[in-house]
Write a protein that binds this DNA or RNA. Structure first.
Length: 135
DNA sequence: GCCAACGTTGGC
DNA sequence: GCCAACGTTGGC
């Protein structure tokens, strides 16, 4: 089981939108590092849903329900997407500021490379963010 | 709206 | 293959 963090701008696609749809293709990723992470995802992996630009915080947990397949928004055939489903909303969002301030997360890939829209998390990091959301 | 980080493009 | 120019992302 692997853990991930995926970003979306909530005015384009929010956690509420995902809850409403029940399941969604995580499409439009056009960065090779992020694509590599999506190819490594397996059914049942869990991912933090993070709102970039607006809110700037982790808001929910989702599950990878379908592994990498051609991105339906890509005509070139080069890019892949996964499918995700909502699992649970965080009791309290965990802000970027709080994550940056927490030494337990100092090696988090997303904090070190802020532009990466799909990033891996260790189990410890994932569990720590969940604990912060309940504190 | 600004700017830093970083990916991509194109000239050489 | 290098590197400058440019575009995009994302935080502030």
């Amino acid at each position: 089981m692997n853990y991930w963090l995926m970003k979306s701008e909530p005015d384009a696609f929010s956690y509420d939108d995902l809850v409403r749809k029940g399941k969604a293709e995580w499409d439009g990723v056009r960065n090779h590092a992020a694509q590599g992470h999506m190819r490594a995802m397996r059914r049942g992996d869990l991912s933090i849903f993070y709102h970039s630009n607006i809110g700037v915080e982790a808001v929910g947990i989702m599950e990878i329900v379908e592994e990498a397949a051609p991105d339906s928004t890509d005509d070139s055939g080069k890019w892949i997407a996964v499918h995700v489903a909502p699992r649970e909303r965080l009791a309290k969002p965990v802000t970027l500021k709080a994550m940056k301030a927490d030494s337990a997360l100092s090696n988090m890939v997303m904090l070190r490379q802020s532009r990466l829209s799909v990033a891996p998390l260790t189990k410890a990091e994932f569990d720590h963010i969940l604990a912060m959301s309940k504190a």
